[in-house]
Amino acid sequence: TYLEDSDTTGFTKSYEGGRYSFVALLPSEGKSLQEYVTALSGVKLRALLDGATHETVYASIPQFEGDFSMELSKELAAMGMPDAFDPLRADFSDMGTFADSDLNLVVGSVAHKTHIAVDEHGTKAAAATSIGMNSAAASAEPAKPKTVTLDRPFVYLIVDHETDMPVFIGAVADTGR
């Protein structure tokens, strides 16, 4: 499908089975990747995906590979689960305690890592999160095909159609051009 709004051209391409799709979002010429990402809210993304049109799209995409890792403890605490990291308030007693000790279990660290590789054979993507515990429309005439050439920085997503949510979001800042 073809995607377009005032700041974006792009496309979606379903993977075999149809549950997941690769989505490419190319910012308008002259708009930096940083400006584009800063303005890309969930509402804007949803409107863009909901406005997709079924058209022939000639797409050109560079091969790319990327890894990302991040420690998420501070972000998770800020999002509403600070008690899990606090030795005085955490309650993981149903999971156990330290042997021969009255110490409670608390979340000590949350590490998240992702990997994606896109080439002429398809997409390979993986993600893992570890938690360390510590004490403490149709037309009569065929439409002209659209062309989307990802030859400058772009945003990509892998979207799960069962949940209608992205499972991967990333950006390619250097397309080798």
Rank of each mutant, 00 (worst) to 15 (best):
Y2I: 00
Y2D: 09
L3G: 09
S6H: 11
T9D: 06
F11P: 04
T12W: 05
K13P: 00
K13V: 07
S14F: 08
Y15R: 02
E16I: 07
E16Q: 11
G18S: 13
R19S: 02
Y20N: 07
Y20V: 09
S21G: 00
F22G: 00
V23E: 04
G30L: 04
G30A: 07
G30Q: 06
K31T: 14
S32T: 15
S32A: 06
E35S: 15
E35W: 06
E35D: 15
V37H: 01
V37K: 11
T38F: 05
A39D: 15
G42A: 09
G42Y: 03
V43I: 08
D50G: 06
H54Y: 07
E55W: 04
Y58S: 12
Y58H: 15
Y58P: 00
Q63E: 14
G66R: 09
G66F: 11
G66K: 11
D67R: 12
F68I: 11
F68Y: 15
M70E: 15
S73W: 01
K74L: 04
E75F: 08
E75M: 12
L76A: 05
A78P: 02
M79W: 06
G80K: 08
G80A: 05
G80F: 07
G80M: 05
D83K: 14
D83N: 13
A84M: 14
F85C: 09
F85I: 10
P87V: 03
A90P: 03
D94E: 12
D94W: 03
D100P: 00
D102W: 03
D102K: 13
D102I: 04
L103V: 13
L103M: 14
L103E: 15
N104Q: 13
L105N: 10
A111Y: 12
H112T: 10
T114W: 06
H115A: 15
I116M: 15
A117P: 01
A125C: 02
A127M: 07
A127Y: 03
A127W: 00
A128G: 14
S130V: 14
S130K: 13
I131Y: 09
I131W: 07
G132H: 11
G132D: 12
M133Y: 13
A137I: 10
S139V: 10
P142I: 02
P142T: 09
K146A: 08
K146F: 00
V148G: 06
V148S: 05
R152H: 15
V155G: 01
Y156Q: 10
L157H: 00
V159H: 11
V159E: 11
D160F: 06
T163C: 02
D164I: 00
D164W: 03
D164K: 12
P166R: 01
I169F: 05
G170T: 04
V172D: 07
T175Q: 04
G176V: 00
